Simulated scan of single mutants.
Amino acid sequence: MSDDQYSLKVYISDESLTALKEYGYRLCIAKEVNGKYNVVFQGVSKLLFQNTFQFEDYYRVFGTNKFADGALIDASTKKYPIMGGQKITLSSAGVFSPTSGSVNPEAGFTVHNQYIEPIHFGVDAFVGNEYSSIYVAEKPVLSGDVFLTPKKKFLVWFEQDLETDMMISRAITNSIRLDFTNASDITINYTAPKDAPAKGVWSYGPLVVLGQTYHPETNTFSLTPAILPTAELVQLTKLLQLEPPSQRGGHLAITNGGCSGQELNRWFRARLRAYRILYGIGQLVQVTSRFDRSLDK
Rank of each mutant, 00 (worst) to 15 (best):
V39C: 08
A198S: 14
L228K: 11
A30I: 01
K9N: 06
F41V: 04
E106A: 15
A274Q: 13
T52L: 03
V156A: 04
A274V: 13
V234M: 12
S143M: 13
Y204L: 00
T149W: 04
T181A: 03
A270T: 05
P150H: 05
R170G: 06
A125V: 00
D292E: 14
E117K: 15
Q235A: 09
V209N: 08
I186V: 03
K87D: 06
I73E: 02
E138G: 02
P229I: 12
Q241I: 12
I277H: 10
L264C: 06
H112I: 03
S289Q: 14
V39W: 05
N65T: 08
G70K: 05
K66V: 09
Y59R: 06
I12E: 04
D14L: 01
L207C: 01
E22S: 02
Y6W: 15
T218E: 15
S143E: 14
T149I: 08
L272Q: 13
V141S: 15
T110R: 13
L17Y: 07
W202P: 09
L236F: 07
L48E: 15
Q86M: 04
F49L: 08
N38I: 07
Y6M: 14
S97Q: 14
D179M: 05
N65M: 10
L178K: 01
Y279V: 10
F62Y: 13
N113S: 13
L240G: 00
G122S: 05
I277Y: 07
E159W: 00
F49Q: 09
W267C: 01
V287Y: 00
F121T: 12
S143P: 02
G85T: 06
L233V: 10
L233N: 11
S184G: 14
S91P: 05
I119L: 15
S294V: 02
E106S: 15
V10R: 07
F158L: 15
